[in-house]
Each structure stands twice: as structure tokens, then as C-alpha cells.
Design a protein around this nucleic acid. Structure first.
Lengths: 354, 354
DNA sequence: ATGATCCACCTAATCGTTTAGGAGGATGAT
DNA sequence: ATCATCCTCCTAAACGATTAGGTGGATCAT
């Protein structure tokens, strides 16, 4: 029975209906040049045979690709899930799919992993890249050479790639909001538990806090940790274990893994929040209101950021495809208006002392 | 300068060194039949030109593919992150990559989405599939026709596909453990807040609870909700809002989104946990110990399950490739020992009343 | 000198699509 | 009757890699 042919190709369909592969191809992709009758026969045969086009062959021939890569580190950060939701929802509209590529899958980030990942993306001729952390200038150069457009989210392009678009939160303004709230509480002894500066938001968040601290006459100490819960735990307990060191009045956790580590340290040391030490964190997450005490948090609108990033990337890719169709060099064109900055809001709950 | 050629192909490298594409190909893929001197020249030229092989062309010609798809629904469930960690770590060893495909990306699961996803995976000629929920028999048939091996994790194959491997938790045993603990507390009025039976663990967990309830003379009510936090919230508040209905003594949440919804309902109604109502949940997650009160939870070892699933799939794919090399039909071979069941442990914290 | 063997390399076919450049026949205008 | 115009369909050449099946020459045993 014809339906049992395994892995039928265009050719098999062509033979089955007695029309050339040309006609079959046009019929299946719904372009004209095929009579209604033939089209019907082709579709019928394709259905019966269970024909499914071979994407590798299509992409090779058409020189197009359908998937966009999201480069990320530490998928355990919750904001990343919202971000992906926004990205996926938007890309689906233009029939593209997003794949995630983790540069810190084995735990820590290394240059070697970044390089091999970038190589991998070029091998698969990705349509475009959304990066959640600043990539190396070399990576950007490579993507440029292969005409793969890049958009940064919540992170800045590296030096020398200032034209590359980025969708970010107004992190300086946001952290000043955080600082102002702490200042209003009358706290003067702040500790910022921060992830590494490789994530460019780190510098901005620190800067906003510094300005706020200066305005309120508070002292700001910065404690750096790798970007995961275990490291945050280790960093903070190491810090507090130094003899003679007193507990800061408030801890500002740079993101999700940081606040997780910090809360564990405080719990293990029996510190009462917020009466002995208050705590505030960047990045809202679903469990924040259910913690003990409910966590005061700075909420970035990650989903919207994801939507904007995906829209921007999709537009650049479309322009690129169009340029190629017209025979122009298809190098991606970045316009200044592709840079966008979103506001963030402070969600006040209990952990700050309110 | 030659380095500025955009998108060099094997042909460009071949021209640059004055050797045929055959020789260049062999040199780059490190097979023999090339003198050391030529190989060096080829590698040198490839480096200078910035040559990166085109994966679509390779896969088309070699008829191999390097990526494995993980079919999932509701990525907000935390166990999924651990699962992915295990899968990624294992696949990396055999130089394969995992991509995730969400059948419920738009929120709810529909048959149509499953069908189009399966079609998509066949188009890209995925090397193999790891499914975290029971797929339709049609999907299984399709994968079979295209000789794409499938492994289920934490879920059973559909009817008629009993030979397909699955790595699961001993859910019946696990839920009996849960039930026994509740029985020992002396609770007799249990409510199971459950996700739909499309996830095959649902039935097993329910069955174990039922047996335990019978053994302890408790009553078990089952309340079903869609598999997300908002639905769980709606389902439970609707249930409790029925006039004359009394609060159950203990709520057993079927998974992560369920417990999240339930805790929000209890908080909004001012119910004290565990004195007024106790709560226990399936699936450990990082925030569980930090909630108010710390959550008693049944811990599946998702990472190990991920590792086992990936190993099993990798082995099947390898056997398949080997069979093809020998000219045999490359249909995947499933052995009975590919079915594995893992134990789970109860992590007792405070929310159960301990 | 002859033949066998090996090595380094090449030519050309192939994977499954898309598509430029026709070809043949029907239709309609003149 | 002639020619232009449409349709519908075809042939054959790509896309960028891999590889079966040679080729020509060096080396070596006899």
C-alpha cells in the first residue's frame, strides 16, 4: 500500500501523481502556475503518502532559515521565562521559532563555551540572535560577517558595536527608586549583593544605588558573587562570617538567584526579616508574594521586553530578506530607533520593613 | 583581503588552497587520504577565510541530524528545569544538542498545536524526541514512519505504543508515601488538587492516594484544574465558595502550578497553614523551604530522570545509525530494559503539620 | 622490466528541494 | 491564417556539502 512508503520525498509524490517535481513543489507551496485540478491531485497524493518536506533541503536551496536563537545564561532566573513567553508569542506571528542556547549550561560561563556556541549558531545559519548578556566583540564580528542580526535584551552591546539594537530596562532610574525607598525607611547601611559585571545591568544598578546612597547619606557596600544561588549563599555567608563585621541594615539582591541565596543565609543564621535586616530584590517572580515575609521587589516588564526584542529582530530580518530579493547586499541595517528603554516599578511588600 | 569574503563555502577554501573540495572536506573533517602538508594548508586557509560548514548541507548529504527535541508543556513547572539540566549534560557528551518544544506555549494544550509541532519536528528531521507528556497515538505513528525514536519521561506512552521506552518515577509508591504521612497525622478529609489526566502521572498519583485513603479510612476528594497557576486558583476558590462546603483538613497539590494556586487561595482567604488546613505537594522546587510555612514536598529526582532518558535515547539513535551503516533497515529498536522506574522521597517540612 | 601495492588526490554523482528558462497548446485579437 | 498572450507544465541547473570510483605516480619485490 502506497501509504506505507517510509520517508517519501517530493519525487515520490511526483511519481505518484504523474506530474513533475516542479509542479508538485508549486502546488504544495501554494504558488501559482498550477491548475486547480492538478493542485488538488497533488495535495491528495501528498496527504496519502504522508509527505513532509525536508527542511534541510529547503533551507539549503532557498538560503533562508526559520529559527532565531536566544542566547542566555542561567535559565533559573525567573525573568527569563517571561522573556521567552514574550519572544515566542511574537515570533509565532511571523512563523519563526525560537530556540534557546545556554552559554552557562555547565554551571559557569566561559569564553570557550561562548565561542563554540556562536560557531554552532553560524553552522546552523540562524536567522537572528537575541542575546540576554553582553557578548564578546569577536562574537559580534562573526555574526556580522555571516550577516546574522543581533538584538540585545536587558544588556548592552559590547564596545565597538554601538549600532546593535538593545531593549533594556531603565536600570539606573529603577535602582534609584529602590534606593529612595530604602532611604525613606531611614536605613543608612546598605549591602548590594551583585552578580558579575558581565551582565551589563550590574553596572547600571550599582550606579543608581550609589547615587541614591549619596543623596540619602547612606553607605553602600558591594559584594560580588557568581550568578547562581549557591555562589550567592557562599559569598554572603563568607562576608558575614568575618569577625567584627556587623549585619547590614538592608540587603539589596541583584536578581533572582542572589535573593534566593541571601534568604537562605539569613534563615540559616536565624536573622529576622525585616526587623533585624531588611531585604529588597531586583526582578519579580511568582513566589515572591508567598515568601516569609513577602518580598519587596523591583518589577521589570520582561514579557514586554521580550515582545519588543522579537519585533525588532523580526523587522531587521524582514528588511534583510527584502534587500536580498532586490539584489542589494543583505547586511542587516540597524536604525537608532531600535534602541528602547522601558521603565520599571517597585512592588512594595513586607521584606523592606513596610 | 581574502579574510573579508562573506560566507565562504567549501568551494572558496578549495580555490584558495588549489586543492579539490574532496581533499578540503577530508582535511577539515580529519579523515585520512590527505597528506599532512596539504591538511595543514587547508586548515590554515579555512581559518583565514573564516570558513564555517553549512549544517543544512551537511545534514542533507549525510542524512544525519544532531539535535534532539524535548516536548514539554508548561515550562513554568520547576521540575522541568532540572530535567533539562540532566538531559543537556548527557547529550553534550555525544555531541548532540537539545531543543525544547512547548506544546502549550500559548497557555493551553490543544491537539492542533501538538500536530503542528510534530509536523515541525519531522520537517527538521529531528534525531530523536523526549516527551514529558503522553502524545497522541497518531503522533507516535508519525514518528515511527519517519524513524524518529521517542522516549517518554515522567509519562506513559499512549495506547498501542507499549514498546516505546519511558523513564518514570514510581508515582504510585510515591503518592502512597504521601498518603501514609497524612494518615499518620490523623487527617481524614483530603482534597487532591489535580492537573488533567493528559499527564499520565495524574492517574497514578490519584491511585496511590486512593489506596492510602482507604487504608487510613480517610475520604479523598479530587478537584481537577488546567495545568497552570491561574486555573488552579480559580478551581480551588470556586470549590471553596460553594455554600456549606467546609475547608478540607489537607490539600494535596498535584504539582508546582497547583500548589502555587492553592497557596494563593489560602492566603487570600486568610487560612492559616497548617493549623486550619495542611498542604503537601508533589515536586520539589527551590523556593519550597523559604515559603511560609516551609512546604512539605514529594521529591522526584528529575535530573537523574533526565540523564537516564537522554542516555536511553542516545543509545537507540546510535544503534539506529549503526544499523543504517550496515545496510539494515534503520527502524529504532526498543528493548524492554529501556523502561525504568525511579523511587521518590518525601521531604518533610512544616506545611503538613509536622 | 614487470606487476603489485599504496598514497594523495580528483571527477562527478548525490542528498531533497527551488526556480530560471523554456515548450506546447489553447484562446483570442487582427 | 497569423500572431500575440496566457496557462500549465517540464527540463535541468542550482544550493553546499559528502563520497564512490577512479587516476597517476611513487615505491618495492621479483
Amino acid at each position: 500500500m502506497s501509504e506505507m512508503i517510509k520517508k517519501p520525498t517530493l519525487h515520490d509524490v511526483s511519481r505518484a501523481v504523474g506530474l513533475s517535481v516542479y509542479t508538485v513543489s508549486r502546488a504544495l507551496s501554494n504558488r501559482d502556475g498550477v491548475s486547480a485540478a492538478s493542485r488538488e491531485r497533488v495535495l491528495q497524493a501528498a496527504r496519502e503518502l504522508g509527505y513532509v518536506p525536508n527542511r534541510a533541503a529547503q533551507e539549503l536551496r532557498r538560503n533562508t532559515r526559520s529559527s532565531v536563537a536566544v542566547i542566555t545564561a542561567s535559565t533559573s532566573n525567573y525573568y527569563y521565562l517571561d522573556l521567552m513567553t514574550g519572544i515566542q508569542r511574537t515570533l509565532r506571528l511571523s512563523d519563526r521559532t525560537a530556540i534557546v542556547a545556554d552559554v552557562a549550561a555547565e554551571g559557569v560561563y566561559t569564553r570557550a563555551v561562548e565561542e563554540s556556541l556562536v560557531n554552532d549558531l553560524i553552522q546552523s545559519r540562524t536567522a537572528g540572535v537575541i542575546a540576554t548578556l553582553t557578548l564578546s566583540p569577536q562574537s559580534i564580528q562573526l555574526f556580522e560577517k555571516w550577516e546574522i542580526p543581533v538584538v540585545f535584551v536587558d544588556s548592552a552591546p559590547p564596545k565597538g558595536a554601538d549600532r546593535v539594537p538593545s531593549i533594556t530596562t531603565d536600570n539606573i532610574g529603577a535602582s534609584m527608586k529602590v534606593g529612595a525607598h530604602l532611604g525613606d525607611h531611614g536605613y543608612t547601611d546598605w549591602l548590594f549583593l551583585a552578580y558579575p559585571a558581565r551582565w551589563s545591568t550590574r553596572a547600571q544598578r550599582e550606579r543608581g544605588l550609589r547615587e541614591a546612597a549619596a543623596a540619602y547619606g547612606a553607605t553602600l557596600e558591594v559584594l560580588e558573587s557568581e550568578n547562581d544561588t549557591a555562589s550567592a549563599y557562599a559569598a554572603l555567608s563568607g562576608y558575614l562570617a568575618v569577625p567584627g563585621r556587623s549585619l547590614p541594615r538592608v540587603i539589596i539582591a541583584g536578581n533572582n538567584p542572589m535573593v534566593h541565596g541571601a534568604l537562605r543565609v539569613l534563615r540559616d543564621r536565624g536573622v529576622t526579616v525585616p526587623s533585624e535586616a531588611a531585604i529588597v530584590a531586583f526582578d519579580e517572580f511568582p513566589w515572591a508574594p508567598l515568601l516569609d515575609p513577602p518580598l519587596t521587589v523591583l518589577n521589570e516588564d520582561s514579557e514586554t521586553i521580550g515582545v519588543l526584542a522579537a519585533q525588532t529582530l523580526a523587522r531587521i530580518i524582514d528588511e534583510q530578506v527584502e534587500a536580498e530579493r532586490l539584489g542589494k547586499p543583505p547586511t542587516p541595517v540597524y536604525r537608532p530607533e531600535y534602541r528602547q528603554e522601558m521603565p520599571a516599578e517597585l512592588i512594595i511588600r513586607k521584606s523592606c520593613g513596610c
